[in-house]
Design a protein around this nucleic acid. Sequence first.
RNA 1: GGGAGUUUAGCUCAGCUGGUUUAGAGCACCUGCCUUACAAGCAGGGGGUCACUGGUUCGAACCCAGUAAUUCCCACCA
Length: 868
Amino acid sequence: MEISKTFTPEGIENKWYAQWLAYKCFKSTPDHRTPYTIVIPPPNVTGVLHMGHMLNNTIQDVLIRRARMKGFNACWVPGTDHASIATEAKVVHLLREKGIKKSDLSREEFLAHAWEWKEKYGGIILEQLKKLGASCDWDRTRFTMEADLSDAVTDVFIDLYNKGLIYRGLRMINWDPSAKTTLSNEEVIYTEEQNNMYYIKYMLSDGSGHLPVATVRPETIPGDVAVCVNPNDERYQHLIGKTVIVPLVNREVPIIADEYVDIEFGTGALKITPAHDINDYEISKKHNLPVIDCLTESGTISEEAGIFVGLDRFEARKLARKQLEADGVLYKTEQITNQIGRSERTNAIVEPRLSLQWFLNMRNFMDKNPEVLSDVMDDKLKFYPPKFKNTYKHWIDNIKDWCISRQLWWGQRIPAWFDESGNIAVCKTEKEAQEILKTTKVRQEDDVVDTWFSSWLWPISVFDGFKDPENADINYYYPTNDLVTAPEIMFFWVMRMIMAGYEWKGEKPFKNVYYTGIVRDKMRRKMSKSLGNSPDPLDLIAKYGADGVRMGMLMCTPAGNDILFDESIVEQGRNFSNKIWNAFRLVKSWEIDGTIENPSTDIAIVWFQNRFNEVINQIDDDFSKFRLNEAMMAVYKLIWDDFCASYLEMVKPVFGQPIDKKSFDATIDFFDQILRLLSPFMPFIAEEIWQNIETRPEGVFLCTSTFPENKPTQNTVLEEGNKVRLLISEVRNLRSQKQISPKTSIKIQLDPSLGISTDWNGILKKMLNLDELLFSNEDDKNWHVSKLDTSRFWADLGDNIYVDEEISKLTKDLAYQEGFKTSVLKKLANEKFVQNAPKAVLDIEHQKLADAGSRIAIINEQLEKLKA
RNA sequence: GGGAGUUUAGCUCAGCUGGUUUAGAGCACCUGCCUUACAAGCAGGGGGUCACUGGUUCGAACCCAGUAAUUCCCACCA
């Protein structure tokens, strides 16, 4: 049967993935083996696979597949996150397109729509991951809003409330007056805009003059409760403690002092409007000032303002300006550029607004669980790369309370009930609440919890660790091994999972955290839908194969560094697939003759086995440091350079000739070993070839076979192999320089002191097309001497010596050697160096000098010969 | 404004405890080849003031200080 010249992945990938699933290769249940667990960072249900997911999940799959082959009970738990804000926004948008307004629906009706949407589109991303080859245990697929996981959220909320860690408090939030909803920070878009800065005189109550105040929001003047100056500001020091009259409303407010005020900015006097500015609010709390909220939820002026009531905030601004001018207190107007936050969805200018929210007291939580910080700092829970430990520490040191409530419907509703007089019961059911509050007239809190308040439980709740703390799964799989995620959610997610782990399991949720970089385009822009600079991962898989894409992603992603994506990197992956495929074609084409023997390949077999062992050891080391790119590169070079370019060329029979049984068996065995090594990285092509180099029983797969074990290496064989490869390269170089066809056979004389044994004779003769290979250090004047810096050999090239070219090359070599010698001499001439450097270093320098000297001598000798 | 990082070849990165490093890899580039597994390939080649300035040291890409550029996180200015 003819094997195609290029590797065609499509059919092969689907075939093996289906088989792996059919034979439950990725299924995990607790048993006697050591577990190796990864929980997937659950992608948003609204999500569509992007390059970031590709990178992240490729890494997880490599880790889990290798662990599986190493004999661990590997368990990769997949799932999705309900993503409150993103999903709700999407559903609202879709409903609007159908002409349905959210405000016309009841909570239950809206949630019905949302669930319908989730069932229809929610699993797309997981299906896409299968195309990548992700070896998740799909029977364990979880969703953060399914019953058990939501129960867990409710339980921990109640638990934390009872522990006194959850409280209600006022907080400044981003309010969209157009949509009448809260916005998360991510939904606020800041842009630079032109605005007027108004300079206003606030008259002192005692009539002794005025205090100048600058503001861009004169319509909030009715909300002023103080004017604040810096205590070190000499201009205003004498005014502290006096009072001023607030313009427009003629209210008397104090002049207070606070270091927060920037002396240089504006007039150096800041009006304090606690209801409409977060900093003002903080200051007002510090100084026990009242709060006057002069805006309504739709952005119009409230009754409390006492002026312009009912007007839109921008209309009020215009009127305020006119009024201030008329009153003669507006003395200057200036154009300034400042940052304005607008709602991503409605483009309305966002209004800072005070509202009652639920909080988790983070400081107390941390004090209760000091391991959250100490384990990371002490490397009991390792971060890769470790530089993120600093960021982590900085966050925890400056931690703020976590606002866990969201004014949405899609999510876990906060388990709190109120009676008519506002008493609170935090409990699981309405019935319990009625009992606690001693009334049937109870009303549940409308808000849901922040999405992260469910995902921080993920490593526990996917194993039903809350429903059933004695569950065999949680006790077996927890703590998990690795978490692979983006550094941008270290604070939102990673830290909070660690917190949850200690609080409810008394133990860290994972042993290692591997932070990946952000996938950017060649211009260093983040890949995003709106920029349209992100390729569709599925198209890439179709074009280059899943294995090619996986390899491309792995090769260029050192831990924590961004990856600059360009199609050429996956092209390299595809080319590599093709290279392996062609090695397979070659081996498949061999005809075996059991009656012949070819002892000349013995040394190649010994050499490659050692080279293989060396790479296995290196890869082990790379994995222990999470350097997957290095590991991938090592496999790439082993296969391309060592196996294909060297080993196969060494054992390959002359065209048309059969191969001996021993060489063939060894080659098949090496191929098998190599594919085992490759399988975690490029599982599809590895499986396909592995299933075809030998007949395998039904249901036996490479991906569930064993990974090659570490073995010691014999360094002498490896060194000899390196010399042989250098020699081959130099002879080829010589041929190419002298334009001697590879078909023309030549004679070579090797200096025995090189250390290349006669075991290599057969291989050298075949690969270099030699008709004679002599071992001698006798200089034959008629022969050509090779490049001298790496090895010494003589080649009989007949009449093919080009003297000028050779002289120029040797002269260049000579200059390098002389320069090198000078630098060493300089070092040795330094008395302090000779006195202070350790003996070993001195010996090395002397050796360098001697080597350079002898090389120079040989070059000179050779030059003379050529010039003669 | 506060914090953390980064700066080595055209690009992406290695370079461990300062000493076989007048610095390596992959890709890209240039030259020559369709040589019976592979042109998605083979053979060969060029390319770097290790950001800059100073210091420590017998010795610095590596340690220290300063400068510059740059990235990320947090907070955001009346």
